[in-house]
Write a protein that binds this DNA or RNA. Sequence first.
DNA 1: ACGCCGGGTTGACCCAGGTCAACCGTAAAA
DNA 2: TTTTACGGTTGACCTGGGTCAACCCGGCGT
Lengths: 247, 247
Amino acid sequence: MTQVHALNQDITLAVIKTACSSCNLRELCLPYGLSLEELERLDDLVSTRRRIKRGDSLYRGSETFNAIYAIRSGFFKTNVLLDDGREQVTGFQMAGELLGLDGISTERHTCNAIALEDSEICAIPFNQLENLSREIHALQKHFHKVMSREIVRDHGVMMLLGTMRAEERLAAFLLNLSQRFKARGFSHAEFYLRMTREEIGSYLGLKLETVSRVFSRFQEEGYIAVQQKHIRIVDIGGLKTLVNHRL
Amino acid sequence: MTQVHALNQDITLAVIKTACSSCNLRELCLPYGLSLEELERLDDLVSTRRRIKRGDSLYRGSETFNAIYAIRSGFFKTNVLLDDGREQVTGFQMAGELLGLDGISTERHTCNAIALEDSEICAIPFNQLENLSREIHALQKHFHKVMSREIVRDHGVMMLLGTMRAEERLAAFLLNLSQRFKARGFSHAEFYLRMTREEIGSYLGLKLETVSRVFSRFQEEGYIAVQQKHIRIVDIGGLKTLVNHRL
DNA sequence: ACGCCGGGTTGACCCAGGTCAACCGTAAAA
DNA sequence: TTTTACGGTTGACCTGGGTCAACCCGGCGT
């Protein structure tokens, strides 16, 4: 069993060995703003690339932390579980985004990262990243910005959870996804949701039935066309209006 | 007018000139884990100390970012405003905690930091902090941990806003304050709330009336004694039970 | 081809917490 | 000392979204 697993890993490593310097996500990801020479030094550091199958976890809460992860392809959710079983999805992450920043503070992960589709990740040993970022100013600067961006993003979610009604939350959610797909060169108007209604609900502080109902209402009112996980945004301006102006 | 202001600042600076190395918050704050020699280098960096009067803001959203702030004494809230006037309080900060980390990502502040009582802060120019943290390994490490801790904290708030009922939120809120006061050497069982019911409500995604009612109910049920802003926790175990076990 | 199952939709009903409004207490202003 | 104003409390009522339950649909395993 262990042997088979190890074998699989070797094959996996061989297949997807790819460098930051040739990764088309480098402008979204950690290498942003680095010179070619600096990029190569980062390459040396990112030795481990790994596939994660849909439903498997990249890491789990309470595991010891020693690396952060960049998503090469695929889609993840992070969640936190309460003793009594309640789940809070704390984020959805897509290609070019970093996972695991939560683990730095206590040197243990504080949430679970679960692949919502077959994914590939690059593991970046954190100690080495700290070492390198002491030498490469641009890397240090960018890493700090990435961490800070995460904090700002979380404040946005707090705003959403604390002051918005269901329709506003879902409109904001769709607009956010749309904008992120667009930044990755995909259509901003048409995409597949990788997560279930229940996961969306957990993220937005709503029940799955409410998510479903609001999607239906959005469709009736001509904002979007939904069919299961397929979303087409028909009236993006309408959604934007929904978010900011209380009815 | 400007002259008077400048004069006041001079006096202020003279009065509260104090070094990190002799600050009794150093174990909670940025200097954590530094050697004496390292501490002195950090001292050089923290040149500006400033008083903020109750109600005044330390910084406002969209101001350009160039320093982070350590609270020497006092109490702050941070908030974000929506176009239509809705406010979301994103956090309450007390002595030894850092403010302004949100500004790193875009080099502009993304929220307002407002003093809830007369306070004193130390401004730490961020560029210089980055420079120094490239030289002092322990400083770099600790700064990363502080940023990460902020992310973890925000996940906690998301959990609270996304899955908890009003009583659970308020119990969690009181326990959190209690624990932070304790860490600063104050009573963990008896303290003054620096914020209004409305601000608590905004932070917890509740209306001020609900906050008031739940406090009254907690009092009836013997968990706490409230009188206006004065809180005494009578049954800390009871509150803890409330948080984790859905009734 | 069929049945199963997990995810999604929809309806009927309910309740936690929001809303609106009256009133109170304390602390600063006059 | 009195006045005023702001924060807090409490009550009556309302409603958005939760709950419970039935049903639907599409993909997968047999």
